[in-house]
């Protein structure tokens, strides 16, 4: 066992861990942060993404001992003063269905927007290439990230990449043929 001290979502934790303990298992099983999940064993799916000292990492591919002395933010810590704009945008743009990939997707998106506050559709798609979603086909996730980017830049702020398309038009009033791109 190796003693570690990690600050998780603002609180300090000191625990003994086996060196082989993955950060994600430490977070889930010892700290109780079960919002962060495990989706694969080859660091492909990104479901376990958290921020380690401010950078998005796959917590299934980091040992808990490597996080000793570090600061970890999980999905449970991003919205401590209400929801983070990226969380809101995923809801607003229907950027999730089953929700299993969502915590990792949101953490990866926040990280992307810190580097690139005004990404194009293609830049969002590349920026979240380390996260797999099986439900949404990604289109509404891309919308959500760009919507959040606009919000975070300050509402009416211009975008070099054009407007974010709305998630859907309301078809209630036009029942027969409602086509939207």
């Amino acid at each position: 066992m190796t003693p570690i001290t990690v600050r998780v979502d603002g609180a300090a934790y000191t625990d003994d861990v086996e060196p082989r303990t993955l950060l994600v298992h430490y977070l889930r099983e010892q700290v109780g942060k079960v919002g962060t999940v495990v989706g694969c064993d080859t660091s492909n799916c990104g479901a376990c993404t958290v921020h380690l000292d401010g950078e998005a990492v796959k917590s299934c591919t980091v040992l808990a001992v490597q996080a000793d002395g570090c600061e970890v933010t999980t999905i449970e810590g991003v919205g401590q003063d209400g929801l983070h704009p990226v969380q809101k945008a995923f809801h607003e743009m229907h950027g999730l269905q089953c929700g299993f990939c969502t915590p990792g997707m949101i953490m990866a998106s926040i990280d992307l927007l810190e580097d690139n506050p005004d990404p194009s559709d293609d830049e969002v798609r590349e920026g979240i290439e380390g996260n797999l979603c099986r439900c949404t086909g990604y289109q509404n996730i891309v919308r959500a990230v760009r919507h959040a980017a606009a919000e975070m830049r300050g509402g009416g702020g211009g975008s070099r990449n054009g407007h974010v398309s709305p998630a859907v038009v309301d078809t209630a009033a036009a029942p027969h043929v409602a086509v939207q791109a």
Binding site: P19, D41, T42, S43, C60, L63, V65, Q66
Partner: peptide, 26 residues
């Protein structure tokens, strides 16, 4: 030797590698 671990940790998880000692250069 553990550098970033992004290849080593997955193969250890799959138990394709099971070293006695891991030296972390972090």
């Amino acid at each position: 030797v553990l550098a970033g671990g992004q290849s080593l940790i997955p193969v250890m998880r799959l138990r394709l590698a099971a070293p006695e000692t891991v030296v972390d250069l972090g």
